[in-house]
Amino acid sequence: EMEVTAFISGTGSGNIRACYGEVIQLVSGGGTDYVWKPATYLDDPYSATPLANPIESIVYVVTVSGACGITDSTSVTIERFPPLEAKFTIDTTSGCSPLEVTFHDQSFGVREYYWDFGDGSPVDYWLSQDTVTSDTTFTHTFYNTTNDPTDTAQTYEIELLIKNINDCTDTLRRYVTVFPEVTANFDLIDMADTIGCHPLTLDFRNQSNNEDYYLWEFGDGGSSGNENPTHTFDNFGTIDSVYSVELVTTSSYFCRDTAWQDITVHSYLE
């Protein structure tokens, strides 16, 4: 008489409650030949130690054969928990700081959410009111905090970990890259020169941050791509002329910002 055994690897038991997607090692012994039925979801139904990954609860019966044609059978039971999936989309994967990203959560089978945005902000914990599906939209703002003079981009790993009522988990990660913020600013060598008489020649001094390219518009049709340009303003009229000087600065990541300053030029005197 054979002593046939069958159990779940790592448990010593013939019964297990398992999360969806968890691969389970079945183990049988006591003979030389093995046939597992049903063969569904098994990697090898003729192995003494097949791997099982059923999508539903199932009972596997193993028939074991030995010497002299002796056979015997036993079974194992797998109770499969319902599926869950961490799933979300984001409306952008890169942009200039500060970067507001819209999240659309589409996870299902969830009881608990743990959002880690990778930027040092506290882990955002949710308790779902609906364990079937979620359809939630929210935003989170990311900043480039490298403070690096070489204008280094910063990438954040976003992780969503979910749990169901059986403590099964699933995780999804996505990545967002944030480029350094460009801040446009300028002044004059002599700030008292914002008001003056025709012809008024001014020396502009760029005070921007994280910029690579410059476009100056002087409000009189003139422009410059220099970092610190000099420009002469004319007024051949009889009343004061006001010119709005605009500086647009752009980085190599195409982030940009704009600064303005009004210049008043008194009329021409003969």
Results as ranks from 00 to 15, higher is better:
E85S: 04
Y113G: 11
L84V: 05
V101L: 15
S75C: 03
V62M: 00
W115L: 07
L84G: 03
F108W: 05
A86K: 00
S94G: 04
T77S: 08
Y41D: 14
F88N: 04
S94M: 03
S65C: 01
Q106N: 11
S107E: 00
R80V: 11
L84F: 02
T71D: 01
A67P: 08
L42D: 10
C68T: 10
F117V: 11
C96N: 03
I58W: 02
V62L: 07
P38D: 14
G95E: 00
P82M: 08
P50H: 06
K37M: 15
T63N: 07
T49K: 11
S73Q: 09
V35M: 13
D116A: 06
I58A: 05
P50C: 11
S65I: 02
R111I: 02
S73Y: 03
E79K: 14
E79A: 13
L84M: 02
W115N: 09
Q106S: 12
V101E: 06
V61K: 09
E85N: 09
G109N: 02
L42N: 14
T93D: 04
A67I: 09
P54D: 08
E112R: 15
W36E: 08
G109T: 10
E79V: 15
L42I: 12
C68I: 07
L99Y: 05
V59A: 03
T92D: 08
L51H: 10
T89C: 00
A39Q: 15
V61D: 04
T40N: 15
T77P: 05
K37H: 13
T71Q: 02
K87L: 12
D105H: 12
E112I: 11
S107P: 03
T40C: 14
Y34I: 13
S73K: 07
F108K: 08
V59K: 08
V35S: 11
E56I: 05
L42M: 14
H104Q: 13
A86C: 00
F81H: 06
V61H: 07
P83N: 10
C96V: 05
